[in-house]
Design a protein around this nucleic acid. Structure first.
Length: 565
RNA sequence: CGGAGUGUAGCGCAGCCUGGUUAGCGCACCUGGUUUGGGACCAGGGGGUCGAAGGUUCGAAUCCUUUCACUCCGACCA
């Protein structure tokens, strides 16, 4: 490709709302442009990168035995009603009607559609397992799109679904997909971690996320510093060891205690001269369900923090909101003095409190706490409710846990039979019995990966594409296009590289040297070959975009030099 | 969804408060010339339904009403 023919409108200035490097450089470099809130056009450079990533994804998946299909982007809403998600999914699901007044949705994910494709076509265990995927546009009407391609409303995603006769076979495929996804991300040149994850609204028994490490990530991921351990988890699912050690000097006589105006954990700790780990923190939330709201209490240790996703999951709520003073009053609760004593509202207790005694909690009475509370023999709903903190001990090896930022690029789920049952998708097993398919589902954000590569590989001048993602590998810069010798050699080299099967761009524009170098650095091709002043002495220069180092190479050797890279 | 803003040339903005020549600036673009190793310079030039609709007025980019879009902070986010 010649730069004079390439539609790549680079700019000096970034859009004012672009904060993240990936957003700034993708727009400035002429890769993408915004056409609406959270909706982006891909220009030639962006499309090349997108296709390269898509190709890597496809090659690895096909190699693992999956088959590519393409489902309709527009899906009849009846399918979504069948699975029950039409009501559950919320406003993210874009719904609309056609001229005949039939309802449709723009697919944000395609469990229903894929199950529908398979049911009544696959009838026997002999046709299993089956792993079908598509790389197709998705639409989610995000409340607040931002960060360019990282959180758009319309995006390209690979979503795959596997069908099995048993849980064991599904888990085999799940492990295969973990391996396949890891290979994909490795080929793209990304530094990533596979972490345990919350399964979220999609349901299922287990899931893992593929997190690319980046300072601007939206997710907090917990990982063990011990290199031989390898534990990693999304903060929403992470667990740590209980570090509580009982202090034998602590004594309490059970009973109510007057604590006027003392309601915060800090104040109580000071008032009773006792560590926060002996206090019971009550967190009130308003759980929103399809048909009602309900105040729910969560009891956790005074030095812990409630993890909202865990709290929401255990309550099986659509979402959790902060409970207001009025909500609490209406539920008969006294803000600041709530405890697990004689409660009428639904509540959950963190599993670390099970069998603890000698604790202090609210007495459900204004200005009173209860001292010497015991959980022994109390048959409450215990669950993991708390957030892991930096420095906690690893649940697996006891090592030190750290927290870092990551961007989710892939998510694999052990789905089970949720969807096959809901949609009545069954097969006959070896004993001739009707069974629902055991399913797995696997997603990878293809357009998001375009941004993620830049997010992880850039400097203050622009993007730095990895070899497997670069729109072109080599950028031949003819320093002065009016210099016949430079022009002739640049053209020659360009033809030579093309004939050699290399991915190469010839910058033959009548621009000044600095302008062309700037574009090279901004767009981020892995290498530039400068054909300029040095040509008189018989040399050209090879520039490594990553290090920006230049080395002079005799012009007759540049072709073989490139072949070595 | 709550709060706060912004819509004027391809991009970034001024003008609006206090209505009144032909709506301006920088970058980008076109023509000619000089330049050619780090985003050059000189001269000339093209490009605007001032987001949309309605209203007030002799007169509206400017004031009023409605509406649409986009952005920021937060909540949300397989």
């Amino acid at each position: 490709m010649r730069f004079t023919k390439l539609f790549a409108p680079t700019t000096k200035d970034a859009p004012k709302d672009a904060i993240l490097p990936s957003h700034i450089y993708l727009v400035r470099g002429g890769f993408v442009s915004q056409i609406g809130s959270g909706i982006y056009n891909f220009l030639p450079l962006g499309k090349i990168v997108l296709d390269k990533i898509r190709t890597v994804v496809k090659e690895e998946l096909d190699n693992a035995g999956a088959q590519e299909v393409m489902l309709g982007f527009v899906t009849p809403s009846t399918l979504w009603e069948e699975s029950g998600r039409y009501a559950k999914f919320g406003k993210e699901l874009l719904r609309f009607k056609d001229r005949k007044n039939n309802e449709f949705v723009l697919g944000p994910t395609h469990e229903e559609a894929m199950v529908d494709l398979v049911r009544n076509r696959v009838k026997s265990y002999k046709q299993l397992p089956l792993n079908l995927y598509q790389i197709n546009t998705k639409f989610r009407d995000e409340a607040r799109p931002r960060f360019g391609l990282l959180r758009g409303r319309e995006f390209l995603m690979k979503d795959g679904y596997s069908f099995h006769e048993s849980i064991e076979d599904m888990q085999r495929e799940y492990a295969l997909m973990e391996k396949t996804y890891s290979q994909i991300l490795q080929r793209l040149g990304l530094d990533f971690r596979v972490v345990e994850a919350d399964s979220g609204a999609i349901g299922g028994s287990g899931s893992k996320e593929f997190m690319v490490l980046a300072d601007n990530g939206e997710d907090d991921i917990v990982f063990c510093k011990n290199p031989s351990c390898g534990y990693g988890a999304n903060i929403e699912a992470a667990k740590s060891k209980d570090n509580f050690v009982f202090d034998s000097e602590v004594e309490m006589t059970p009973g109510e205690f007057h604590t006027p105006n003392i309601s915060s954990i800090d104040d109580l700790s000071e008032f009773f001269h006792i560590p926060k780990s002996y206090l019971i923190k009550a967190v009130a939330k308003k759980a929103v369900y399809e048909d009602r709201d309900e105040v729910i209490l969560y009891f956790i240790r005074g030095d812990d923090e409630l993890q909202e996703t865990k709290a929401q999951n255990i309550a099986k709520a659509l979402e959790l909101e902060d409970a207001s003073e009025e909500d609490l009053k209406a539920a008969g609760l006294v803000a600041g003095f709530m405890g697990p004593i004689d409660l009428d509202v639904k509540f959950f207790v963190d599993e670390r409190l099970k069998d603890r005694d000698l604790m202090i909690c609210g007495a459900n009475k204004e200005d009173y706490h209860f001292v010497g509370y015991s959980f022994k023999d109390k048959d409450f709903d215990y669950a993991d409710l708390i957030s892991v903190k930096k420095g906690d001990e690893c649940i697996k090896c006891g090592g030190e846990l750290d927290i870092t930022k990551g961007i989710e690029v892939g998510h694999i789920f052990q789905l089970g039979t949720n969807y096959s049952e809901a949609l009545n998708a069954t097969f006959l097993d070896r004993d001739g019995k009707t069974k629902p398919f055991v399913m797995g589902t696997y997603g990878i954000g293809v357009s998001r990966l375009v941004a993620v590569v830049v997010e992880q590989h850039h400097d203050d001048k622009g993007a730095i594409w990895t070899k497997s993602t670069a729109p072109f590998t080599y950028d031949i810069i003819i320093s002065n296009i009016k210099d016949d010798e430079q022009k002739r050699f640049g053209e020659e080299l360009y033809q030579q590289l093309l004939n050699g099967g290399e991915s190469v761009l010839l910058d033959d524009r009548a621009e000044r040297f600095g302008f062309k170098m700037g574009d090279f650095e901004l767009i981020g091709f892995p290498y530039a070959i400068i054909v300029g002043k040095g040509l008189k002495e018989g040399v050209v220069e090879l520039v490594d975009r990553k290090t920006l180092t230049k080395q002079s190479v005799p012009k007759d050797e540049i072709f073989s030099k490139i072949k070595e890279l």
